[in-house]
Design a protein around this nucleic acid. Sequence first.
DNA 1: GTTTTTGTTCAGCTACCGTTCAGCTTGATG
DNA 2: CATCAAGCTGAACGGTAGCTGAACAAAAAC
Lengths: 226, 226
Amino acid sequence: MRLLLVEDEKVLNQQLTKQLRNKGYAVDPCYDGEMGLFNALEIDYDVAVIDVGLPKIDGFELVKRIRAQKTLPILLLTARDHWQDKVEGLNSGADDYLAKPFQIEELNARLNALIRRNKGQTNPQLAFGDLCINTNLSEVRLNDAIVNLTAFEYKTLEYLIRHPQKIISKTELTEHLYAQDFDRDSNVIEVFIKRLRQKLSPEQQDKYIQTVRGQGYRFQSDADNA
Amino acid sequence: MRLLLVEDEKVLNQQLTKQLRNKGYAVDPCYDGEMGLFNALEIDYDVAVIDVGLPKIDGFELVKRIRAQKTLPILLLTARDHWQDKVEGLNSGADDYLAKPFQIEELNARLNALIRRNKGQTNPQLAFGDLCINTNLSEVRLNDAIVNLTAFEYKTLEYLIRHPQKIISKTELTEHLYAQDFDRDSNVIEVFIKRLRQKLSPEQQDKYIQTVRGQGYRFQSDADNA
DNA sequence: GTTTTTGTTCAGCTACCGTTCAGCTTGATG
DNA sequence: CATCAAGCTGAACGGTAGCTGAACAAAAAC
């Protein structure tokens, strides 16, 4: 999941960036509203975390401008816990709101909920045939047995599963799995796909992930494509 | 278990701090409501003990303000044992109430109960396969044989066991085992985990505690992950 | 004051995982 | 069929998170 972070306070920004990366997000940290706006319009994020008090363009304004052109879910951060801010925040188009200080766990839970809601899912648990993935625990089960995936393998699979049936290009995957400026001509994705297929279904490797030559990959439980 | 103590009377504060530390809590002592509020919002405590008569912000007010943003269990202390205070205390959002003077044992028992209730447990005894832990006696048994753990080894294990299946990061562990300002880059936790594993299952060291690279540790009786 | 236990630090090691690469297979196109 | 590009695959590399044994320090027990 690729995440845009806009927070001017340097220490907090770095801290959040680190913590969110630990949670598995590809984080692009920005330190002012201009930079944030530029990135938000330029890049296809899965979610944005924006501080209210920002130099150049303040949080509310930033949210409005992003919303004018994009629909990505936005969570607002604020030091002030006045209810007016909350109202203004939600009016400006933010989807959720969190008052500082807060625990990273709570932020993570809300981000999970936002992303889930945005993708039209209400259940953190997704099942496809005998494959079941719990997005809260980052746990994948195949016929109830836990499948041991590495961090990147899991991220790859989660992104595919969140867009079932849809063809996902390799560049789309890299853009969502990695922060900006990643070497484009590499075959990492192919390698991860290979390893995923191996772990999920060694005998029939295209059981869950099919290749669409020249376009990308498609996740589809073979129970579905009858 | 990390505990916030807010008590203005200096002698009592120090005394309580010492006694509670003996009971195994990581205690952050505060001497006024402001300091207490700041810490309560900043840090993720497992429980708070707050005196009613406080300078700057009084106990009731403090509880309300903490409750506005946090859900941690709170126990109120008061010199006056008037029933009005009790009513007001519980109305303000406290979970339990203890009149001075009191025995440290009673305080400890109530804190245990509060923490247990908060984590959704009613039984002080927890069992996982052949491992059994009594949180009242701080006693761990493996196949009915007592396992001799040092104070910190026990605290580490208890925290893990109170969050089964969940991945606990090393920073989360340090934050809950130690009072504030603890050196972050140290490998104490790794050492304790090693010693715990050694004591619990020398042959198969990941039997109860598994490592999730880059994320933390997970307690799970291997009977569960079938 | 001495001994023993417990907590913390350190240095070297291990194993894992992200990444790269070279060679191969597959499928499209003429 | 030959050619070419896209994708597959097994192996190998290097950095680093985590492991480990021992030494050291601090606290507790005696």
